[in-house]
Every structure is written in structure tokens, then in C-alpha cells.
């Protein structure tokens, strides 16, 4: 390569790398700005926020919005329900899915194929909203806590992922346990389960995030019972009330909603309240995020193994 050509390539490389870096940084800003802005608003004085101009840093710092949020009875209860529901779903889903995955990982099991097909098919078709709703209704699960977890105790996708993972356990291990007289459940509980912990951890995180973020089941089945409301549902209600104000073009003003739950003479606005609840709802996700991302590649690796 001639000296001139080399110089040209060098300059091209520098230009490309610079533009690329600028674009990627811009993209990162676009990704984080909405959350950072919300964080800033949540720590800013509500009446000051209405004047506009809050970007990434609060102008008049206050904890008042959070004070209001933590004193709202509905948020307290919703937080409790969201946490309980997530814990129950994670435990039941992992237990039942892994148990079933163990049985269908056993090559000699007579119903292995049938069970696999029954579950895999459900990944591709759905009876639809109304028939499912009527089933839940006929089972008497409308406005109950159990509607949150019973429909989710086994999930087809996780079943296949777990089965694939369990198959990597040497068969001789299971054989020798059998020769020693161990029953099937004991083999599953004492030998298989400890060996699939990395897989369980990954799935647990994703199941937990899914459950924490879900809104539709509360909306469809439990919207008639305030005690069963979740954080996402409460946040959406607040969003809906401020949205209608927003579409008319008027800045969201001070409303009675802002006074909810406090006898204080201070006020907050739906906008600020919404920001605080958004942060409150997102924090658990952001807390598990470092663990989640450690498992991304791993989780995807186990998910992608096909037969």
C-alpha cells in the first residue's frame, strides 16, 4: 500500500470511528434521558415543575413527592400485592415447570412426547381473549389473588428451556440414584434441582420481571377490587388521568388527586406524583438489572439450544 493510500485509510477510519461514537452516545442519551428526566422531576418542587424547564437536574430539590407517594394508602397496598404476586409466581412457576421438565427429560417416559406437543402447541395458538376471560370467570377467579398466579404455574417456553438444560446432566447420575433406590421425586429434588440452579436463576429473573411489569391481568380480572390492585395498575390510572389533561394542551394543573392521602397544606401535581411513582415502580427492575445483564448471554445461550 502506498503512503498516500495509507493516509487516506487512516483518515477514513478516524472519521468513521468519531461519527460512530457520536451516534452511539446520542443513542444512549435517547435511551436514558426519559428516565433521568423523570427522576429529576420526581425530586423537584411540584409547583416549580409546572413552570417547565426541568431537564436532567432538579431546580428546587424536594422529597415531598416521595413523601406523598409513601403516604398514599393505595400505593402501599399495591406495592405489597405486586411483591407478593411476583414472589408467588416465581416460586410456583419454577417448581412446577422444572418438575415437569424433569419428567419429559426422561427418555423412557411414556407420555414424554404427548406432553411436549401439548405444551409446545400453546406457544403458537391462543383461544383468544373472550374464551379465556369466560374460563377464568367460570372458575370463579375474577377478583381473587389466585388469578395472578394459577394461570402461570407452567410456561411452555421455560419448560423447553429447562428440559434442554436438564438433558445436559449425565444420565448415569440419575441411573445410579435409581439403583440406590431413590424415588423419582427425590431424584428430581435432590439431584436434578441443585444441578440446574444457573438455569433456574436466569428464568427466575425473567419471570420476576414479567410478573412485576404485568398490567393486563389486573386490568382484565381484578379491576373491580381495589385491594388487589398492583403498582403498574395504579400508575396507569394516574397516567390516564393526566393524559386526558395533556391532550387538551393544558399543562397538568394542581388537582385534588395531588392531595391524596395527606392532610398537609402542601400540594403536589399529578405530573410530579406520576414521576415519583414511575421511579418507585422502576427501581426494583433497575436493582435487578445488573444481575439480569450478567445472565443475558448465558440465558440466551440456553434458550437457543434446539433439537
Amino acid at each position: 500500500m502506498s503512503e498516500k493510500n495509507r493516509k487516506k485509510v487512516d483518515i477514513e477510519n478516524i472519521v468513521f470511528t468519531t461519527l460512530n461514537t457520536i451516534y452511539l452516545i446520542f443513542l444512549c442519551v435517547v435511551m436514558v434521558y426519559p428516565m433521568v428526566n423523570t427522576l429529576a422531576v420526581s425530586f423537584n418542587d411540584p409547583l416549580d415543575t409546572v413552570r417547565g424547564g426541568i431537564y436532567i437536574w432538579p431546580r428546587k430539590f424536594t422529597l415531598y413527592n416521595y413523601y406523598v407517594v409513601f403516604n398514599m394508602d393505595s400505593i402501599y397496598k399495591a406495592f405489597y400485592i405486586s411483591v407478593t404476586k411476583t414472589i408467588v409466581i416465581v416460586i410456583t412457576n419454577l417448581f412446577f415447570t422444572s418438575m415437569l421438565a424433569y419428567t419429559i427429560s426422561r427418555k423412557e417416559y411414556i407420555f414424554r412426547r404427548f406432553i411436549t406437543v401439548v405444551f409446545v402447541l400453546t406457544m403458537y395458538f391462543n383461544a383468544g381473549l373472550i374464551p379465556n376471560y369466560l374460563l377464568i370467570k367460570n372458575l370463579g377467579m375474577i377478583n381473587t389473588f389466585r388469578v395472578y398466579w394459577i394461570p402461570h404455574i407452567v410456561s411452555a417456553f421455560n419448560l423447553i428451556v429447562m428440559r434442554t438444560y436438564i438433558r445436559t446432566i449425565p444420565e448415569s447420575l440419575i441411573e445410579s440414584a435409581k439403583i440406590d433406590g431413590a424415588r423419582e421425586f427425590r431424584i428430581y429434588w435432590q439431584i436434578v434441582l441443585p444441578l440446574i440452579i444457573p438455569c433456574l436463576a436466569t428464568i427466575a429473573l425473567f419471570v420476576a420481571v414479567g410478573s412485576w411489569n404485568s398490567w393486563f391481568d389486573t386490568f382484565l380480572y381484578n379491576s373491580g377490587k381495589q385491594e388487589l390492585s398492583t403498582l403498574q395498575y395504579e400508575l396507569q390510572k394516574l397516567l390516564a388521568s393526566t393524559m386526558t389533561a395533556g391532550t387538551r394542551g393544558a399543562p397538568a394543573g394542581v388537582t385534588e388527586a395531588g392531595r391524596a392521602g395527606t392532610g398537609s397544606s402542601n400540594v403536589t401535581t399529578p405530573q410530579s406524583l406520576r414521576a415519583a411513582i414511575t421511579i418507585f415502580t422502576a427501581v426494583p427492575i433497575l436493582l435487578v438489572y445488573p444481575f439480569l445483564q450478567r445472565y443475558f448471554i448465558h440465558g440466551l445461550a440456553i434458550g437457543s439450544v434446539k433439537e
Binding site: 426519559p34 411489569n213 403498574q232 400508575l235 397516567l239 414511575t278 415502580t281 427492575i285
Partner: peptide
Amino acid sequence: FLSWVIVAGL
């Protein structure tokens, strides 16, 4: 990893 409720709000 953010819920649609949060995303819609943002």
C-alpha cells in the same frame, strides 16, 4: 425491561 405502563408514561 421497563413495563409498557412506564414506557407509555415516558
